[in-house]
Design a protein around this nucleic acid. Structure first.
Lengths: 207, 207
DNA sequence: GAAAAAATCCCCTGAAAAGGGGATTGAGAA
DNA sequence: TTCTCAATCCCCTTTTCAGGGGATTTTTTC
């Protein structure tokens, strides 16, 4: 049985070293490369096509989301496992949309990493979402409202500091419309002013 | 010449492994332990007193700040190097106040870690603050206004979603006063509404 | 002990947001 | 095909915020 070829992408040398150390303890895994950015990752993939790419989501220049899109476009058979710290869960759906097969917390243990790799290599999805979440966090997550695309648009503009009428101009709609969206956002987030709105939105990476 | 004894504290196994891998490449360093939380770190220190403790700031239960306070209280001669990801710079001053001797980004290279350890062991402060910052970030950082303690207090309450009068009640002052602070904050941050305020404050970890 | 900085308080105006109410249109789901 | 939902638009009232203008007191710093 062939070993599973894994490429790790992360801008933190520490994490790369850590992953190398942990992956080398897994007997069915073979490391094909360690890349500290998306460019180098694509180079590495070209020379030695891995089975799985484990990539950080938050990276300067080209993010993990974009890298995943690139990989899936050029090498659809390569599986991608996204890695992030706990406060970026909002990016998971983005990653999955781009074709990621797994989601790993940076606080993952060797066992979890092992499980993630073997699960993903069997064409299944691995999500380590709830593993380290407190009840409070779970509650907060479940309360996360579903926003329409227009609402997201308006929210990000609010967060940019624009007023209703400025946003209305940008979106070519009436200020009344923007105000409606704003009110819906307040209701959905269950807050009663802009401050609460931005705070929550920022917390869940929506802005 | 004796080796410098180092203990690493981080709740992420990946980082611990990474640090171990990187530190073992430094010939003048001897790892006395790897702890995944503050409790275990204190145990480790008891059995083998290290010269330097490298600790993550963001940890569940007991934070790096609290751990540093504990260490400096019980073992004043032990040096502490704080470690964090880039968006927590606001904690640096807290760490320094608690007696930390260094600050290391998690994106640090082996060279930087080496430098941090040797600098700190020579009783100097090591701050890796500006190392990996882009010009844009540097500019933004340098523009960061100095807030008074009252202003910080008011800002965090604004971010919590309270109105001026609610804040006034909490602080036992007149709403006029709170309004003054709010206006000063707007001026200092050079923004013109609450949204811009919170966004900036959040960006620099002030809330 | 004087000067500077921080914290407090007050007033006014106009703009913006919050909190209600409602209505219409179009697209997609049941 | 109805029914729901998203998106659009409108009006009203009250509250809060933003942008000015000041002033006083306390605390810190030199």
């Amino acid at each position: 049985m062939d070993k599973i070829k894994v490429l790790v992408v992360d801008d933190h040398p520490m994490v790369l070293e850590g992953m190398q150390a942990m992956l080398s303890q897994i007997d069915f895994v073979q490391i094909t490369g360690l890349a500290r950015n998306a460019y180098l990752a694509m180079e590495d993939i070209k020379t030695a096509i891995p089975d799985i790419v484990i990539t950080d989501i938050n990276m300067p220049e080209i993010s993990g989301v974009e890298l995943t899109a690139k990989i899936k476009k050029e090498y659809p058979s390569v599986k991608v496992i996204a890695m992030s710290t706990f406060n970026e869960r909002s990016l998971i759906s983005q990653m999955v949309q781009q074709g990621a097969s797994g989601y790993l917390l940076k606080s993952a243990s060797r066992e979890q990493i092992e499980e993630a790799i073997s699960t993903v290599s069997r064409n299944k999805l691995y999500m380590s979402l709830d593993l380290e979440l407190s009840n409070k966090e779970q509650d907060e997550m479940s309360k996360l409202p579903v926003l329409t695309s227009r609402e997201k648009e308006v929210l990000s503009l609010i967060a940019e500091g624009f007023t209703n009428s400025q946003i209305a101009e940008k979106l070519f709609v009436s200020p009344y419309t923007v105000d409606s969206h704003r009110k819906n956002l307040l209701t959905k987030f269950d807050v009663n002013n802009t401050a609460g709105l931005i705070k929550l939105a920022a917390k869940y990476g929506l802005v």
